[in-house]
Structure formats: structure tokens, C-alpha cells
Amino acid sequence: MKITSNLTHIATEVEFEAAKSEEELRAAFDQAGLQGFPAELDIAERTEDHVQMMSLDTLLGFAKASGLGAVTYDVTYFPHADEAEVDYQLNQLSRDLEISPEVIRDVCAAEIKEYLALDAKRDASLPVHSIVEAYTGGTAFAWYGMNEYPRLKHVILRKLAQGGQKAKRNFIMRASKAQVDLLEDY
């Protein structure tokens, strides 16, 4: 049980069960006497601790005891990453950090190469994550299953936090431009 006395966010480490395929989920639903309906659910938007149940069996038991006859689910597979995927992720990260993708690619070249090699070894036939949700009383109760997979963004952010001459120069140039823009306002 969690008890908090203020409104600060408490980061908790969460252990996820392994992601399940649609067939495995359907078997679990059948065993619990529930129907499962596919839905497009986003794990990034559904990790609220107060509605999260960490065991699929517990969630399905809760749904059944609550009088529900069905749950929704989503299973996500990722194909192996390629240069187009790297470009896509670098462009997103570039926009978020306001650093050019060329600088990120240059500073993190070894990490990108390692990421592609690691991802090539991953079994792409296994789901990356799966989600099951039960809705009752206007609240979504959810189970999340995740399998490990390399995440380029995490590797790059770690490397950029360590710095690099081009990244440092880019930040200095941006700060200098911001100062000049500020002075022009007066």
C-alpha cells in the first residue's frame, strides 16, 4: 500500500511481466471467462500507478468480479530497426532537444551502430509490449506486459548528457544567439 502526504511525484521501479501474443492473451481471457476485443492502446499514455495492476491474472479476476464480460487489448510488434528508423528517431529527438540530427549522429555514431547491431539480434516475432484494459466506473484498470528491446533514445540521451565537442559548440552557439536576440529587443 502506498501512502503519500504531499503532492510530489514518487518514482517507483516497476517490474513488468513479459509481453504476451494475441493467442496467449485470448487463452488467458478464455480461462477467466472473459471476451477480449482488440483496441489501439498506448502504453506511454497508460502507466498511471493508481489504475495499474501488475498481474494479468489479478486484472482478469478483478474484471470478472466487477461483473465485466469483456476487456480490451493491444499487442505491439517492432520490426528490426534500419537507417530509416534511426533517421526518424533522430529527427524526433532533434526536435525535442533543439539540436541538429547531424550533431546527434556525429556525437553518437558508435552508439547508433551498437543499437542497430543489438536490435538485429532481437527476435522480431515476439511482441515488444502488450496491454489489457478493463473499464469500470469510468476508470481504466490495466495490465502491461513488456519484453526487453534496445531503445535508441535512451542510449543517445545518456551519451549527449556526457557531452561532446560538437554538442557543446551547438549549445554555446544557441545560447549566444539567444543573448543577441534578447539584446535586440531593447
Rank of each mutant, 00 (worst) to 15 (best):
Arg169Leu: 14
Pro127Ser: 03
Ala81Trp: 09
Pro150Ala: 10
Lys64Leu: 07
Tyr149Val: 11
Asp82Ile: 05
Val51Ile: 13
Ala124Trp: 06
Asp74Cys: 11
Tyr144His: 14
Lys166Asn: 12
Val51Asp: 10
Gly67Ser: 02
Arg158Ala: 15
Ala120Met: 02
Leu118Ser: 07
Lys177Val: 11
His154Gln: 15
Ile112Gly: 08
Val132Tyr: 00
Gln162Ser: 14
Thr76Met: 08
Ala109Arg: 08
Gly164Ala: 03
Gly145Lys: 01
Val75Asn: 03
Tyr88Ser: 14
Leu160Pro: 04
Val51Leu: 10
Leu68His: 04
Lys159Thr: 09
Met146Ser: 08
Ala161Ile: 04
Ala175Phe: 15
Tyr149Pro: 01
Asp87Met: 05
His80Val: 05
Asp123Glu: 06
Leu126Asn: 05
Gly164Gln: 01
Lys177Thr: 11
Asn170Glu: 15
Ala70Asp: 08
Gly137Leu: 10
Asp123His: 03
Gly164His: 04
Gly163Gln: 02
Leu60Ser: 03
Asp49His: 10
Arg174Cys: 05
Asn170Ala: 15
Pro127Lys: 04
Ser176Asp: 13
Phe171Leu: 15
Leu118Met: 13
Ala84Val: 09
Gln92Cys: 12
Lys64Ile: 01
Leu90Met: 01
Val71His: 01
Arg95Asp: 12
Thr47Asn: 13
Leu157Gly: 02
Ala124Cys: 04
Val128Gly: 07
Lys64Ser: 10
Leu68Thr: 01
Ile99Lys: 04
Leu97Arg: 12
Glu133Phe: 00
Gly137Asn: 11
Glu111Arg: 07
Tyr135Ala: 12
Ala134Trp: 04
Ala167Val: 15
Gly138Gln: 06
Leu97Thr: 09
Tyr73Leu: 07
Arg151Thr: 12
Ala110Asn: 03
Thr139Cys: 12
Ala84Gln: 13
Phe141Lys: 02
Tyr144Glu: 09
Lys153Ile: 14
His80Leu: 06
Thr58His: 09
Phe171Thr: 09
Glu85Arg: 14
Met173Ser: 12
Tyr73Trp: 04
